[in-house]
Design a protein around this nucleic acid. Sequence first.
DNA 1: GCCAACGTTGGC
DNA 2: GCCAACGTTGGC
Length: 149
Amino acid sequence: MPYWLMKSEPDVLSAATLQRLHQARWDGVRNYQARNFLRSMQADELFFFYHSSCSRPGIAGIGRIVRTAYPDPSALDPRSPYFDARASTVKNPWSAVDVEFVEAFAGIIDLACLRSAPGLAKLPLLQKGSRLSVMPVEAGEWAAVLALR
DNA sequence: GCCAACGTTGGC
DNA sequence: GCCAACGTTGGC
């Protein structure tokens, strides 16, 4: 079963907030490669919840996919920061998935920790210039991150 | 189809 | 706030 890593700015949605909400829509992805990964997700697949653009970027916990990709409503909402004037109900290029909370780590596994860990050298997150917000994680990488908790 | 200009991401 | 790196746009 594939594993994933998804980035979120904690100001928008943090792992702790997902824990409180139990479930949330993962929307606003506006990059085609990331969207294609969203579309390939299956129910019950797990992902690392990564906090980006914050004081301590890193992996904060684990979530699970509960609903596979469907047209992202935020693209159609003029009040949304993710609004896309080119999208319509008939033709919406963007996708969202629904996720649920699984686990919050006792502490953030920050970038320095990830970079120094064995077995994570190929993780797209750690590649120079990588900006993908949704990416696959190999089973070995998944285990390597879990070992850092 | 090329590519310069621009906007965005995201760590620091 | 800075800036490197990337994706997208749009003229040609």
